[in-house]
């Protein structure tokens, strides 16, 4: 339930904003992040922005989320398999 997702601020009007969340436009209440500006990134949870986030960090998170959405066969499972395989190699290397 505490999932929060980075989104780019597209427009602002008072405490209301429109953000781009993975290609979708979403109305978000910005009252918890005063001083936020258009083109900055925020963390969105339950219809509210709860924190400002740097562009590079937001894009990194979206890279991860896109891998999740791409499905197991193309994204994370392959990474996870690689991770397990490489860590086994590393662990065996350590043991020797």
């Amino acid at each position: 339930m505490c999932l929060a997702v980075p989104a780019k601020v597209i427009s602002l009007e008072g405490e209301d904003g429109v953000v781009d969340l993975g290609g979708n436009r979403l109305s978000v209440r910005m009252a918890l992040t005063p001083g936020i500006r258009v083109d900055q990134w925020v963390l969105v949870h339950a219809g509210f922005s709860i924190a400002k986030i740097e562009t590079s960090d937001a894009l990194e998170t979206w890279g991860y989320l896109k891998a999740c959405y791409a499905g197991d066969a193309t994204g994370l499972d392959r990474d996870a398999d690689e991770m397990v395989a490489s860590s086994r190699v590393a662990a065996e290397g350590t043991a020797r």
Binding site: M1, A4, R29, A31, H45, A46, F48, I50
Partner: peptide, 13 residues
Amino acid sequence: GVGFETTSPATAL
């Protein structure tokens, strides 16, 4: 109104 502190500010506002 359920949730931890991530969610409760939304309820409060």
